[in-house]
Design a protein around this nucleic acid. Structure first.
Length: 435
RNA sequence: GCAGGGGUUCCCGAGUGGCCAAAGGGAUCAGACUGUAAAUCUGACGCGAAAGCUUCGGUGGUUCGAAUCCACCCCCCUGCACCA
């Protein structure tokens, strides 16, 4: 028997991780009484999860640590349809084979966060295509559709803007999404006695739909709980950087970039993020917060957050790699880097490219940097050049030298005859190896 | 199918024959200030180092000149019709 941690709910509450629940106190008691089975769904809308998915994913882990059995559902079926909840416009459908590929990737990713070998409350990963894919239309309409009232569905807040707003609309396909997700819950209730679904607060409508359906189809009592949508104090979208979404896949977002993302968290958000994302005990987080408030200068919270998150997602090795690069680049000791250090930085995920010395004359510096992905356009590089914001191995490059890339990457400037660390702006680094 | 309204640069959204690479806002990037924060200020923001080149759903026209006018086509929205 696994032991149940009765303080789970309290902890979640203290972390601000509970947006809404059904059942009120009944749910708290229900969870405290014994090991329960819960699930959260992840639709394959890309080939990787991103940090926006972390809150529900880590919540599954929190429940598991407290003794409950988590099920991660990957939406091989729902991903084919598209969730309209709070989306401004209809989405493009992806082909079944693409979605199938993504489903597999997400399954692998999700699996790394929950424990599959811990006895009674071992995790499960399921794919809703396994049951939805078999179903025929008439069964669906008769067994599932009959339990839903269109009148209620169109009144859901999550689809309201699609219904009300001039210039938008919703297809029957997306409108039906809620039925599929509800059916998932009912099915998991039947198969695993899964009685709790968690998800982002945008999922409230879909979750309550599932609770109702489980009751109507099987007479079961089920619960729902939503987690807050992560917002930033400045109103911009969480999880995006200049280079795009922050993915969990290290091939899409390197551990270094991942680490840097968390390190750049605004003061106004950092303590909230420590609560939301890390497994540090609440007491410790409060301590950090108080220490920062009392101390002068730069707070320590961002560093803690970055280390915790990078270790959690990319393991200790990923964290070490990220820290190696960060130390090398930001502690002002570029000169101290040896040849092997430079090569290691490349392996660690510092963005890098290899150029051929003979080709350098072909393009101006701006173009080389754009090609390397350091800037979106030559204009941006030009702007930086004019402000002495482009450094090659520590030396500022003036605008006039732009045309002569040969001279910018002169041999006598090279480290170990071939390495150049180019810095654009305050934070963007790129390692060029010129052979 | 018919009628009406739309499709503008990342997003929102002005522009209805030249002064338009296209207002304004947001986002983003860079600089100053800082702590690899925030706020604020400054600059950039279709592509190009530049000369210049390419854009306003698509194609073809009218015109010295089109995002703006015309024709056809594609797509979206609303209503009506069809389904009855």
């Amino acid at each position: 028997m696994t032991t149940i941690d009765p303080s789970l709910f309290e902890d979640l509450q203290a972390r601000g991780l509970i947006a809404q629940t059904t059942g009120g106190d009944a749910l708290t008691e229900y969870l405290a009484e014994g090991g329960r089975t819960l699930y959260s769904g992840f639709d394959p809308t890309a080939d990787s999860l991103h940090i926006g998915h972390l809150v529900p994913l880590l919540a599954l882990k929190r429940f598991q640590q407290a003794g409950h059995k988590p099920i991660a559902l990957v939406g091989g079926a729902t991903g084919l349809v598209g969730d309209p909840s709070f989306k401004a416009a209809e989405r493009k459908l992806n082909t079944p084979d693409i979605v199938a590929g993504w489903t597999q990737k997400l399954k692998d990713q999700v699996s790394r966060f929950i424990d599959f070998e811990c006895g009674d409350n071992s995790a499960e990963v399921v794919n809703n295509l396994d049951w939805v894919g078999q179903m025929n239309v008439l069964d669906f309409l008769r067994d599932v559709g009959k339990h839903f009232s269109v009148n209620n569905m169109i009144n859901k807040e999550s689809v309201k803007q699609r219904i009300d707003r001039e210039g938008s609309g919703i297809s029957f396909t997306e409108f039906t999404y809620m039925l599929l997700q509800s059916y998932d819950f009912a099915e998991l209730y039947k198969r695993y006695e899964c009685t709790l679904q968690i998800g982002g607060s945008d999922q409230w409508g879909n979750i309550t739909g599932g609770i109702d359906l489980a009751r109507r189809m099987y007479g079961g009592e089920a619960f729902g709980m939503t987690l807050p949508l992560v917002t930033k104090s400045d109103g911009t979208k969480f999880g995006k950087t200049e280079s795009g979404t922050v993915w969990l896949d290290p091939d899409k977002t390197s551990p270094y970039a991942f680490y840097q993302f968390w390190l750049a968290t605004a003061d106004a958000d950092v303590y909230k993020f420590l609560r939301y994302f890390t497994f540090l005990p609440m007491a410790e987080i409060v301590e950090i917060e108080e220490a920062d408030r009392a101390g002068e200068g730069r707070p320590q919270a961002q560093g803690v957050l970055a280390r915790e998150m990078t270790a959690l997602i990319h393991g200790v090795e990923g964290l070490q790699a990220a820290e190696r690069i960060t130390d090398a680049l930001f502690s002002g000791s570029l000169d101290q880097l040896g040849e092997t250090d430079l090569m290691q930085l490349k392996l660690d995920g510092l963005p890098s490219s290899t150029l051929s010395r003979g080709d350098l004359g072909e393009k101006p510096l701006t173009q080389w940097l754009v090609d390397a992905g350091m800037a979106a356009s030559g204009k941006q590089v030009k702007d930086a050049l004019g402000r002495d914001a482009v450094l090659i191995n520590g030396e500022a490059i003036s605008f006039e030298r732009n045309l002569d890339a040969q001279a910018c990457f002169a041999e006598e400037l090279a480290r170990y005859q071939r390495f150049y660390i180019v810095k654009l702006g305050k934070k963007k680094y790129h390692l060029f190896e010129v052979l």
